[in-house]
Amino acid sequence: MTALKTLFARPWIWSFVGAALVWLAAILFTRFNGAGGMLSAALALAVFTVIVGVGQMFVITLGPGNIDLSLPANIGLASAVSMTVMNGSDSRIALGLVAALACGFAIGAANYLLIRALRIPPIIATLSSSFIIQSVDIAYGRGLQIKPPPGFAGFTEMQIAGIPVLAALTVLFTIGAAIALQRTITGRSVLAIGQNMRAAYFAGIKVERTCAATYALCGMLGGLDGALLAGYFRGANVDLGNEYLLSSIAVVVIGGTSVAGGKANLPGVWGAALFLVLLLTMLNTFGVSAGVRLLATGLIIVAVIAAAGGERALR
């Protein structure tokens, strides 16, 4: 009983509850047809949101105003870069992944440079850089029709006993990220900076180095996501990352990470990503029109956030 109570005191539990509820609603509608398939499809799709969500979470945890709006453009460009480098050949998969990571790293580093050296607020800096990245992608990727190497495409959708391999790997990655956040100096630094940047500086924390590393990490995760998405959807595309602008932020917040900074929540990212994917699946099985689907998604997101409530001021 008390175990249950502590479980429900955790902010991330609600995102899993929400995910379970929409899944139930969907399979009730289909009279339990394809319940398992729906779940493994959701897992496979949620992976892509989780990867960028984790990056976004680290950035948001840096404190008020920190956000990365360049993820969609980043995903688009990295998908094109990685597919070009792989060039459809299985032997070049690793090289392509490294290229995608490097591309993302460059974007993250450039973002931080704009924020730090030019003192542009992150929201505008990453937005402006995303415009530029988009142009680069359009100019560079025009007419690019390279298919992913068959081995790579196969890997992104490989399943063992109904569980997508990529999802399992991503779970491991999330666990690692959670440990890094709480028990490494860099992780602690991110949390400290998010709570009080001045205090962090005076406590001897390397504020600039940590922020730079965080934006670079977020960029790299965006790049990786781009490569994986190109593998999963059989090719690079400028618009490949578009939906991740909103969903990367939404999963972070629905998952219980504080937008005020300093408090991060990794399990919640998974719960929220599953919730969003299953919500779409549910609305699709109901066969509603595009307008109703958007309306319902929006209302449910607002309702979930309102129900979870914000941070109460201490005293």
Binding site: A260, G291, R293, L295
Partner: peptide, 20 residues
């Protein structure tokens, strides 16, 4: 005491859906 960024993010879906 909700974060406005997220609430309005949700609302952007709502207005878009209504417009459609």
């Amino acid at each position: 005491s909700l974060p406005s960024i997220v609430v309005t993010l949700g609302m952007s879906f709502v207005w878009q859906g209504l417009a459609i």
